[in-house]
Amino acid sequence: MGAGTVTVLGATGKTGRAVVAAALRRGLTVRATSRDPGHGAPAVVTSGGPDGTRSPQATGDPRLSWHRADVVTGEGLADALTGADAAYLIVPNVHPAEVEAVELATRAATEAGVERLVYHSVADPDDARMAHHLRKGAAERAVRRLRPDAVVLRPCAYLQNLLPSAVAGHLEVPYRLSAPFSLVDLDDVAEVAAAALDGRLEPGSTHDLGGPEVLSVLQLAEVAVTVLGRPVSASAVTPEQWRSGPGAGVDGSALEDLLAMFAAYDQSGFTVDPAPLARLLGRPPTTWAQLLTKESS
């Protein structure tokens, strides 16, 4: 296909920016939304620098336009969605009003005549140990009730979450270093998202998206040493130490959600069957070593 117009809600976030870039690469016209598109909204996004972020590059691509919209309040959704063939729905991470926001956006997309809806959920959305996973599960059911034809993507945690620390030479996490993870490359997830927006995935389907390897944080550090050719250490901190350090600016329900997630990771890690992603991509998914090589070159 590759000729339609798609709206990407929450396009200035890590995931949204990657989906925008993938949709543009696929030949789609993109309406990217932001609560304040006049301040810092990138013109287009490509794979970024060694800090693991997505680097904005102004290219003047006429297929990309920015629109003011708020997925939580609903402000501007109708304008951003009207005339679009497809929409990608993602709510800010650990947002307490995810279910309500998803219902609001799904209704707005339906009323605007959007043909295809793709919802960004999470792997294992019914894990009772994590409230934000349960909200994703409830949001999935809301989407299915309102739009049975919607496509749901369930990614595992991203490799990019640990990439900046690996490049900097030290991985520090608030859970045990031996916990297993099948971390997934964000660009692989975005490639599948763009295919879904383009109508390439079966309507009403749900897809788990896990990376091709099961690695602990300790093993991630060992691979990074080999690829980067310099020391990369790994250490575990207590949740209290994380709370007074990297988590110092997090409070309320977001803090509770993240601490619960760390406790779940400490118990069992976070692993997902890699087969669905490989099948959807039509190629082997990106490995940790491949991502490190790409980002350090």
Rank of each mutant, 00 (worst) to 15 (best):
M1P: 09
G10P: 07
T12L: 00
T12G: 02
R17T: 01
V20I: 00
R26V: 07
L28A: 10
L28F: 12
L28W: 02
R31L: 03
H39C: 00
H39Y: 05
P42N: 15
P42Y: 03
V45H: 14
S47T: 13
R54F: 06
R54K: 08
P56S: 06
T59Y: 10
T59F: 08
D61F: 13
P62D: 09
L64H: 08
W66G: 08
H67N: 10
R68V: 03
A69D: 09
L77E: 05
G83V: 11
G83T: 08
D85M: 13
I90G: 14
P92W: 11
N93C: 07
V99F: 03
A101I: 14
E103L: 05
E103H: 10
L104Q: 12
T106Q: 11
T106D: 09
T110Y: 01
V118S: 04
V122N: 15
D124F: 15
P125V: 01
D126R: 12
R141D: 08
A142M: 05
R144H: 10
R147L: 14
R154T: 02
P155Q: 03
C156E: 11
A157T: 08
Y158A: 01
Y158M: 09
Q160W: 13
L162S: 11
S165I: 00
S165V: 04
A168R: 03
A168Q: 15
G169R: 00
R176G: 01
A179S: 12
P180T: 00
F181N: 06
S182F: 07
D185W: 09
L186T: 14
D187M: 14
A190N: 01
A193N: 06
L197H: 12
L197V: 11
D198T: 10
G211M: 15
E213R: 11
S216T: 14
S216C: 09
E222Q: 12
S235N: 10
V237S: 11
V237I: 13
Q241D: 12
S244F: 05
S244P: 00
G245M: 10
P246Q: 14
G247A: 02
G249H: 15
G249C: 13
G249D: 05
V250E: 15
S253A: 13
A254M: 10
F262K: 05
A264D: 01
D266G: 01
Q267W: 07
P274G: 03
P274L: 05
P274Y: 06
P284N: 08
P285M: 10
P285W: 02
T287Y: 00
Q290W: 04
Q290D: 01
L292W: 03
